[in-house]
């Protein structure tokens, strides 16, 4: 077990493992996203109240789920980095951040567009919306802080601490619809109950969520390899890579 961890911590091994795992997730994303999109947009029936405007849910929900999952993944990686001083974990956290920020932005943007025909407003200081906006600022803060330190070891530690502090916002987002019952509706999916929509609607949503997850994993593995090349550019195995 320990030797496995040490190997995973070594840049050369990480690079190889990422390369091995990558194709599965690219292929899965390449299948799930087009099929899920076609099903969501053209096959699933319109909502009896919201009509076809509800088709925004198929990008809104995956984006919102990823916005939170990516940050949790970053926090886990940051904890591994701080406790065991494994640099690959810090690299993983750094390559995830821009995609997490993009997902948060997509969640907010698609939600605003959906709000106009259904709520009659594109923005309101509802608890879910506000906590999601804070999440976007957290992502921007993490990215900017790393940039400000210019890739130093001290900077990596500061970013990891900020990520671990920032992760308290995740339960706030999750329970915001329960604690403050304002405008945003509660979760569409949970693990214990059946969804309150027919299978023809939740099945494509499930495909989209899985597709977004697979894309995120594939992209992270790919960009982690880029980051490994960048930071280990003096190592012999990287030199051989280019030769």
């Amino acid at each position: 077990m320990w030797t496995f961890w040490h190997k995973l911590g070594s840049p050369k091994w990480s690079y190889a493992i990422c390369g091995r795992l990558q194709p599965i997730f690219w292929i899965a994303a390449l299948l799930l996203l087009p099929i899920g999109s076609f099903w969501s947009l053209a096959i699933s029936p319109p909502d009896y109240q919201m009509g076809d405007s509800y088709r925004i849910i198929y990008v809104h929900v995956p984006a919102a789920i990823l916005a939170q999952s990516v940050f949790v993944a970053m926090a886990l990686a940051s904890a591994v980095f701080l406790i065991w001083k494994i640099k690959v974990a810090d690299m993983a956290a750094s390559v995830m951040a821009p995609f997490g920020a993009a997902m948060t932005l997509l969640g907010l943007f698609s939600g605003s567009l959906w709000g106009v025909p259904t709520w009659g407003t594109w923005w309101t200081w509802d608890a879910r919306l506000t906590s999601m906006l804070i999440q976007l600022f957290l992502y921007i803060g993490v990215i900017a802080l790393r940039g400000a330190f210019g890739g130093s070891d001290q900077g990596a530690k500061a970013v990891a601490v900020l990520t671990l502090v920032g992760v308290v916002n995740i339960p706030i987002i999750k329970y915001s619809v329960v604690w403050w019952n304002t405008l945003h509706q509660p979760a569409t999916f949970n693990l214990t109950e059946r969804p309150a929509m027919p299978a023809s609607m939740w099945m494509p949503l499930l495909l989209m969520v899985l597709g977004f997850y697979c894309f995120f994993i594939a992209l992270t593995l790919f960009r982690l390899r880029n980051e490994l090349i960048r930071r280990e550019s003096r190592a012999r195995w990287v030199q051989e890579l280019a030769g």
Partner: peptide, 26 residues
């Protein structure tokens, strides 16, 4: 889109832009 084109398509458009953009960037 049943009259909702101006809400549905920009939301989907940004999603496509993000997925394609990140792939190309990487």
């Amino acid at each position: 889109m049943g009259g909702y084109a101006k809400y549905v398509w920009p939301a989907w458009g940004l999603a496509v832009l993000i997925i394609a953009g990140f792939t190309l960037w990487a």
